[in-house]
């Protein structure tokens, strides 16, 4: 039983991270109907920016005196950096191809993904880069179950970001414009919503969330690598599909499910094949219910 609860907490942590990445996929798919292959690279870039900023502050010696400030600054700067990166990537690789065939846009997205991950490799080195480890030692014990402070931080921060995003999308004017663009670009343009601006904004928000996820993963596992975006990227995509692509709530639920499945699969079935479970779910969902758990109308061209 303790083992089960422990795994449940681990699954919640991992699931939250997947949910954050999956949101980027689902939002971008919602507005331009394209899988952003480079999304995993935004996640990796976020992780790298986090370690760069944190070790800079650690080098200055701020880490001992102002840990909260350092952490906030690293999250803020890293999310801003990835948003900035994503806006440019969209302008270069996706915008000119919006009217071309889908294959062209997909290939260009794939090229961007390879380009970015190798760009990270060239600027940051081939080897793992370690996070400053003095943060978040210890945790709380409830009987035999231990929840580390880091896990608490990840779960709380993920929850806050998800709530914030929900408010942004469903309660504000910008969110309304985003939903309108996702539904019908021509009609939303007629009521003077600039679809270019909304698409840039969507990319920026998605990349910002992915960057936050990247720092969390970096803190959790202790290091980042230039190709760390690839596998979580596919898993998060699986989460987005599971929840119904284009659906924000669905992506959150899907992320949690994929995280849980992975942790429980690794814990009870086989640790070596933990990466396979998410792919099997992805294939099964696409085969039996391509609209996902919460997906609505999907017309023929999408699936």
């Amino acid at each position: 039983m303790e083992y089960f609860i422990q795994q449940l907490i681990n699954g919640l942590t991992l699931g939250g991270v997947y949910a954050l990445i999956a949101l980027g996929y689902t939002m971008v798919y919602g507005v331009i109907q394209l899988i952003n292959f480079a999304h995993g690279e935004f996640f990796a870039a976020g992780g790298y920016m986090g370690v760069i900023v944190l070790s800079y502050f650690a080098g200055l010696g701020y880490m001992e005196t102002h840990p909260v400030f350092c952490l906030t600054a690293s999250f803020a700067l890293s999310m801003a950096f990835c948003a900035y990166l994503a806006i440019g990537v969209e302008k270069i690789a996706y915008k000119p191809l919006r009217k071309e065939s889908r294959l062209a846009a997909l290939l260009s997205a794939l090229g961007m993904s390879i380009f970015l991950s190798n760009g990270l490799m060239l600027t940051q080195g081939v080897y793992d880069k370690a996070y400053p480890s003095e943060l978040f030692q210890g945790g709380l014990s409830f009987g035999l179950v231990t929840v580390s402070y880091l896990q608490m931080l990840i779960v709380c921060l993920t929850g806050a970001l998800l709530v914030g995003l929900n408010i942004l999308v469903f309660k504000t004017k910008i969110g309304m414009a985003m939903r309108a663009t996702a539904q019908d670009k021509t009609m939303s343009a007629l009521v003077s919503i600039s679809s270019n601006r909304i698409i840039s904004l969507t990319f920026a928000i998605g990349a910002g969330l992915a960057a936050a996820a990247g720092i969390m993963v970096g803190l959790y596992y202790g290091s980042v690598r230039y190709d760390m975006g690839f596998v979580p990227g596919i898993k998060a995509f699986a989460a987005a599909v599971l929840g119904g692509i284009g659906n924000i709530t669905g992506a959150m639920v899907g992320g949690l499910i994929i995280g849980m499945v992975e942790i429980f699969g690794a814990g009870y079935l086989s640790g070596e094949y933990k990466d396979v479970f998410a792919f099997i779910i992805l294939i099964a969902v696409l085969y039996f219910k391509p609209t996902g758990i919460m997906g609505e109308n999907i017309d023929d061209t999408r699936v």
């Binding site: 690789a93 290939l107 260009s108 794939l110 090229g111 961007m112 390879i114 380009f115 190798n118």
Partner: peptide
């Protein structure tokens, strides 16, 4: 090498 491959794919598509 891989950087150039990625860039090639984007440039060819554009």
């Amino acid at each position: 090498r891989m950087l150039i491959f990625g860039a090639t794919m984007i440039i060819m598509m554009l």
